[in-house]
């Protein structure tokens, strides 16, 4: 069994009026199938309203499936008795850095999760130190979150999840509200956790550049997985991506257009270096 296994997953939001009568049904996940292996770095793409956040909330048992099944680390998310085990296994980082920091001092916030799951006091401190060091925020442990930049706050939020020692972290557009520098720092911290600690990462994002280093990419549209593959494979299908209202990284776009103009470049060029190499190859 894979670490995360979604089969025929359906989620319907039911809208009710004031008396509780059903007003409408919004299908947010529509028979979604998806597998993730332990230790992978997965990216999930999709334009607004494609159901990414809804899916993310299922992984953390914040929402339960209307139909179908979802297993996280071998646990069924529909089983209420496992809710807290699932949340401990799969931690979640949200978009807005301000709205997920609970305490007024960084280290106390990082300790919040371990406190909730009843970790003994000394162990909490050890975990706080380890997680803050892992995201490079140890020096700020006694600061107030209000004085940090967005990228720093987001790294604290990641440390807060790390302190619960999850096997997997789901990040729902963690960089959407950050400036380019903050974005880079957060991405670097996430990659570091994936490489050194073997934490499975599920990164939901709008930024194509952040997908380039992923092991595997899922593209969602209207609650379904419409494309999947490694980044090179995905980005070589520029036209299909456009159909799903997604842009490709600028470099890939440039290569694609050069190719359409007749340059014999290969498909799915993701980085500037690759493009330079390809052009070099052609010229010689």
């Amino acid at each position: 069994m894979s670490f995360i296994e979604a089969k025929d997953l359906v989620h319907e939001y039911i809208m009710r009026d004031e008396e509780g009568n059903v007003e409408g049904v919004q299908v947010a996940l529509d028979h979604l199938d998806l597998n993730v292996e332990q230790g992978q770095f997965i990216a999930v793409l999709g334009h607004n309203g494609s159901g990414k956040s809804t899916f993310a909330k299922h992984l953390n048992a914040l929402l339960v499936p209307s139909e179908g099944t979802l297993y996280v680390g071998g646990m069924d998310v529909s089983d209420e008795s496992l809710t807290y085990d699932i949340r401990q296994t799969a931690g979640m980082v949200f978009q807005n850095p301000d709205n997920q920091i609970i305490a007024s001092v960084i280290q106390e916030d990082v300790g919040f999760g371990p406190e909730n799951i009843g970790v003994p006091t000394e162990d909490i401190w050890a975990r706080v130190e380890k997680s803050l060091k892992a995201v490079g925020m140890w020096a700020y442990r006694e600061h107030s979150p209000n004085k940090l930049s967005g990228g720093q706050k987001q790294r604290v939020a990641i440390a807060g999840v790390m302190a619960m020692e999850p096997k997997c972290i789901i990040l729902d557009e963690p960089t959407a509200m950050l400036d380019p520098d903050g974005r880079k720092d957060v991405l670097a911290a996430v990659h570091e956790l994936n490489k050194t600690k073997g934490v499975t990462i599920i990164l939901i994002t709008h930024y194509m550049e952040e997908v380039v280093d992923a092991d595997y990419v899922y593209v969602m549209d209207k609650g379904k997985v419409v494309m999947e593959g490694n980044p090179t494979g995905i980005f070589s299908q520029v036209e299909t991506l456009k159909e799903h209202h997604l842009d490709v990284p600028q470099i890939t776009m440039l290569a694609h257009e050069l190719k359409q103009e007749g340059l014999p470049l290969k498909d799915g060029i993701l980085t500037r270096e690759e493009l330079i190499q390809e052009i070099d190859r052609i010229c010689h």
Binding site: L62, G113, E115
Partner: peptide
């Protein structure tokens, strides 16, 4: 949501950092 995601479930069974 963020508190729930971090396993908060009220005062029962919580330990204290300080």
């Amino acid at each position: 949501l963020a508190m729930e995601a971090r396993c908060y479930s009220g005062g029962e069974g919580r330990t204290k950092m300080l």
